[in-house]
Amino acid sequence: MAQLTSALPASGLRARPGLLARIDLPRRVVFAAASSMILIVALLMVFITWQGIQLFIADHVPVGQILAPTWQPDATNGPTSFGILPFIAGTVFVTGVALLISTPLSVGLALFLSEVAPRWARAIVQPALEIFVGIPSVVWGWLGITILVPFLADTFHKKIAISLPVVGQVFSMPGFLTGFSWLAGSLVLSIMILPTITSVSYDAFRAVPQELRTGSLALGTTRWQTIRHLLIPSALSGVLTAVVLGMTRAAGEALAVQMVIGNSPSMPAAITQPVTTLTSQITLDMGNTVFGEPWQDALWTMSLVLLIISITSVVLVRALNKRRMGS
């Protein structure tokens, strides 16, 4: 049917087109609107890349130095070192733990919505998820500071450390002295990326043909066996896409994370300890540094790293989708 319609306008059924129709102004306008996004991306990449490489061009910092573990940008403090490895590691680790927490929960929720939930339950949970998406990141950060951080500090530092033998040991070894920690950041992020992973996985599960389910169940398998051996394998690339998208969102989140992770600019040591990420260091230092000094140039380099992370993930998602379409 679709082929039929697209063939129609091309044929000579219409009256001879006037000048206006030949120029096809509407088409040009809508094309300009859509392609403006190409312009935006190009501009964004050019500007951020240009600023991001100033550290190497204008300040003559060797490219390899950014992979050093020492962040010492203050020239009054002796020789400078623009190692952003602690921030990259912080971003990777905080994001990693957030994914570990969020993925099972989100995929479970997607399975619940797609396979288990009766209509009425879906009608409640889906809008709830949309509201989750809409809650601003500063509000998550504020909840983190006022509820999560004190909770971690009080509960795991003072009480559980004594009352629970095994868990207590784990938590009391380094101790959540302040509650501002890697784990606090990961927990806040895991809730923030939950709707992303859930909705994309949900779409992947829904895309599995119904006949496969019916066939499987007809063979006498339980619903869980169907999910486990049929649905998850066939929706795997979709779920992976969901995880990559969640990862991208987590790695780029700035304010909520900055508010709860403690921002200690050293290599992440333990999950109970403060760490810092690329985004939070940019947030902290950008306003205090001046344009054009090496210190701020290093921050632009960090934002270039963030840009590279997100573009890579887009490419990754496209590759995953292609594989799914291919199979």
């Binding site: 009054t76 380094p174 302040t178 921002n263 200690s264 403060p274 810092t276 205090n288």
Partner: peptide
């Protein structure tokens, strides 16, 4: 934060630009 005026001033006037501790239980 090491870029802040507070830190810069404290470091200069009180610590005489000595290098501060890092890692472990330090928060920023």
């Amino acid at each position: 934060p090491s870029s802040s005026g507070t830190r810069t001033t404290f470091k200069k006037l009180v610590l005489n630009n000595a290098t501060e501790a890092t890692g472990g239980q330090t928060l920023t």
